[in-house]
Design a protein around this nucleic acid. Sequence first.
DNA 1: TAATCCGATATTGTCGACAAAATGGATGAG
DNA 2: CTCATCCATTTTGTCGACAATATCGGATTA
Lengths: 227, 227
Amino acid sequence: MLIDTPKQGTLADKAAQHLAHSIVTGELAQGQKLNEAELAERYGMGRGPLREALRHLEGMRLVTRIPNAGARVVVLDRKTLADLYAVREALEGMACRIAATQMSDEEITQLSKLLDRHEAQIKKQGGKVYAQKEGDLDFHYQIVRGSRNQMLMNMLGSEQYQLLRMCRHRTSRNAQRTGPALQQHRQIVAALALRDGELAEMLMRRHIQGAWQSIDEMIAKEEEAAE
Amino acid sequence: MLIDTPKQGTLADKAAQHLAHSIVTGELAQGQKLNEAELAERYGMGRGPLREALRHLEGMRLVTRIPNAGARVVVLDRKTLADLYAVREALEGMACRIAATQMSDEEITQLSKLLDRHEAQIKKQGGKVYAQKEGDLDFHYQIVRGSRNQMLMNMLGSEQYQLLRMCRHRTSRNAQRTGPALQQHRQIVAALALRDGELAEMLMRRHIQGAWQSIDEMIAKEEEAAE
DNA sequence: TAATCCGATATTGTCGACAAAATGGATGAG
DNA sequence: CTCATCCATTTTGTCGACAATATCGGATTA
């Protein structure tokens, strides 16, 4: 899995990874209060490391902290997600444009093969979108890596951007957008192969816009149903 | 000042603000080792809060931490700054485009007045670029605020983006770009007033590219001189 | 009955001490 | 003379206890 590497580093780091995973997967509900003593005992450590972990998670915007009042899991409302996707569109669009000039032929070939595997998985198991989901993130992350921009990799990569995973997890159930998405991914790879950065950026932006539209509709339905 | 609000919150928060300020202003040199005990004593607190502060700073990328080996002030090399400005171009360009449709007439007027003040300051004190520098950040941040995108405000605003301030501080001495920069700022405000988002984005991107070019040249000279 | 005040309880903030790991230097072998 | 090894010292990581603050419930009063 992309997220966990629990057997390394300090206790605080492990706790941060465990917590991030729990939050992203929804094991810890949005807005839930995070009790330091309780969590410390659950993970078998003192409160010191756990507090550091919370500070870390605060940095990646997975929890919000109020002084003297504790930490809560972040709540992803519609506006927040809209903002997130707008930022993502700008950032990944840029990554795509630069990647078109920076990636090696070999890397682009690998990317294409990754999509082959996705396709095979989709055909085999229609319902199980979970694997595809992580794979999709792989696809996007590979392109970000292709931009050779370390700051971008930090922002969108393993560390900073768990919010996206969280959103994905929440919206994974009825996301039957895998078909069109794969098609769009293929178009993007084609543009990269042609070294056409402008086109690649445009396709990526549309792709992300489409994803947001689909998610937005879904949230609208949820909110409607929740009344 | 925009950075400091030291008389509030927990000790860890105060330490984080103090440290951030010290790093941004260069009081703590790039790459310098940060000794926990020493800093804790200097700020008059235990090591616990200070460690939390370091975790916080790590989150905003002002320090890099290696487990069991301590924290060091980040080093801004040429590549890192290039990456930073590329990201900034994408993000602030987007902010500018959205701001053109979201800002109120009142806000745009205020922005224009802000530039009047800058101009007055420049005319009065040719050498003292410092005030302009902070004011320039104000200008950019006001536009980001105009985008109404909270995530963007977090990323580019008070918290996440101190790296930029740090870079500014380092390059403030021989930055006689204030004249052209003001001109470009005026153009951007004009585009905003016309509600022309596309133009505003283009102008902002050029403005940031120009800033980077100027900084890049300067770094090149520095590196040359350092041999 | 509703609002407010107040105290008991739970939770966060902070400190000091100990354990574990890394750093640096001296010593010895090749 | 160079390199590896080992040990002393420093520095980081962790824990438990205490202080400060917030939270919650009940009692009191208008």
